[in-house]
Design a protein around this nucleic acid. Structure first.
Lengths: 193, 193, 193, 193
DNA sequence: AATGAATGAGAATTCATTCAT
DNA sequence: CATGAATGAATTCTCATTCAT
């Protein structure tokens, strides 16, 4: 019995995901340039050629991986709401960020490593900004409401802090007191100052 | 009549510096792996071979560049004092960090980009930690004195924040309100909380 | 429809052999260091890169070539017999040695040329000795039986003579009276002296 | 007081010899291709450039070294005599050969190593033959007189044997019973057979 | 006579990508 | 859909040689 169109589609989808997950693992662990297509193929137990059946190029592959990560982020934080943040919502935001950080450490290490290569940044940064900007706007409103004298600066501060924590966490996840840090951040930004 | 020892010494010194500055520029702008020795040679208007007259390998070259940066940092912050931080000293520390960040933006972009490539991190991280650890200790004492309930966590928070700011700054220095941020950090960490 | 495992295996086998035979030819004629991978590739009408698909490095390539030659030798002379040599067996030994010399002149030129490069000797010498030592032991017994007063010295003499002949032969095979020499050696070492 | 022409000449001579002896040492120990001009200069504690003041090229340098060795050989064996060899003279010949071998082991190792690289052989071989041929002629007469049925073959045998011994000796001088071997050769070729 | 900085051709090696099967 | 042999451009690095001083 020949497979249906749909079954093929599903096989393709699974293969794509397999390749991407192996590639993410390797990119994050060994670096983008130290990870050859051969290694990925070996890791996924498929042939080199097949990868080109699913992705146009190595660059295309990493682009997809990064975009996927961004999309995960978007799904969680999609702010199609009212642009208004409550204390609870801020706590949720911080908590979710750290939860994703914990469960996708590899991805975020990769993300930061890529971010630093300006050519990749140009590629990916734009898309990331589109996601971040509305969040930042909402946050600005929130901080304004909280009495911040210079909410724009405080937003920057918040963003930098979050990224700094991500950075430190992915570099050495074992000893990082993520939960304590969460508490502190929450306090820092919810109290009226 | 042959050149004197001193003249050779000077030529070497100048060439080394030229190569390092061109390399730093390119490494930071295009990434370590996207910067070939050929490009560096072209940038410095010298031959490929000459670079190997001054540096044993590409790896040796980047190691020297990074160590130079660390040394600059050390010179400013060498804490063989009393291990005690006053409010003024903290302000000085933050201020100096940002001043160095501004004047060595390229270097710090490079530093972060390397940090993320685990193999390079192993190379450099150790040396950096040796510098950082005493600073962190001093800071811990300071925060304790300021009444921090969990100074270890606060030190982590501070370090992450500083790195986050550095990261954001090097990625987009133009629009970053570094001075305002400085104020905010200072306030955050000097008030009794 | 993809090629079967067996077809690939055969292609690989043939290509490996092609590369090895071209490389042997060139190594022997021009020397190891004067033979670049490019030259070998050109000689085999394949790309440089393909050679690395079959051999890990230039050193690996020559190692395989030399080991192949040793293996040929071992196949002929494998002395897991009784350790006893008759006159006929000695004649056979000498005859076979010269036959191999004639049919593998290139290989032996290469072998001698490598022998003299101490680093390569270390690589290969050990394996060769393993083969030679038992042969020499058998020969010593034989010469003892023939009445040699100092069989150890005579074994050395025999080995040196055989290698000297090989050396002269590979340097100028055209005019070398190999068959007459064979007779003489046989007489020299079979008569009681 | 300015140095005289002669003094300069002597300095030059000494430097040439220094360079050659260092180069011979290194060529023999590490191989021709593994010995860079830089290494030689370092070994002789002079500058790279100066070597080119004395020798046109690396090839020129090795050519001179090899020719020197041949000349040493010629000095000892120059057969401007009667072309007739007595038993005593043969013993002297063999003895001298081995004496030179012992005192110049490095040189002979180099010589053999070069011999095997056909391009060098072409360079040097001709000159060597000019030296060897008269010796071989004299030896042929001697062997004829001794009753050799095929003196040409015996000359070849003798030459091969001598080279074989040299080869084995330079490869592992420590354990080689050179003196015993000498006795055996002498007996082998002086007895009527 | 002497120096060593500088050159540039060429070496080994890697790897993304293609393509016949 | 799948394979892996094959390519070739690019990379790091070496080194004989030149030359200004």
């Amino acid at each position: 019995m020949p497979r249906t169109e749909k079954q093929f589609e599903q096989i393709r989808e699974e293969k794509r995901d397999l390749i991407k997950s192996v590639a993410l693992e390797l990119f994050a662990k060994e670096g983008y340039y130290n990870t050859s297509i051969s290694k990925i193929a070996r890791g996924a137990k498929i042939s080199k050629g097949l990868i080109y059946n699913y992705f146009e190029s190595k660059e295309d592959l990493i682009k997809e991986i990064v975009f996927d990560g961004i999309d995960t982020f978007i799904e969680v934080f999609d702010p199609n709401k009212d642009g208004i943040l409550t204390d609870d919502e801020l706590e949720f935001f911080i908590g979710e960020t750290f939860r994703i950080l914990k469960s996708n450490t590899n991805y975020w290490r990769l993300y930061f490593s890529l971010l630093m290569q300006s050519n990749v940044y140009k590629l990916v940064g734009r898309r990331f900004l589109k996601l971040i900007i509305p969040l930042m706007k909402t946050l600005k409103n929130y901080l304004e409401w909280k009495g911040s004298k210079n909410p724009l600066v405080d937003v920057r501060l918040f963003a930098a802090l979050m990224d700094g924590i991500c950075l430190h966490y992915v570099l050495d996840p074992k000893d990082f007191p993520l939960d304590d840090i969460k508490e502190r951040i929450f306090k820092l930004f919810t109290i009226n100052n």
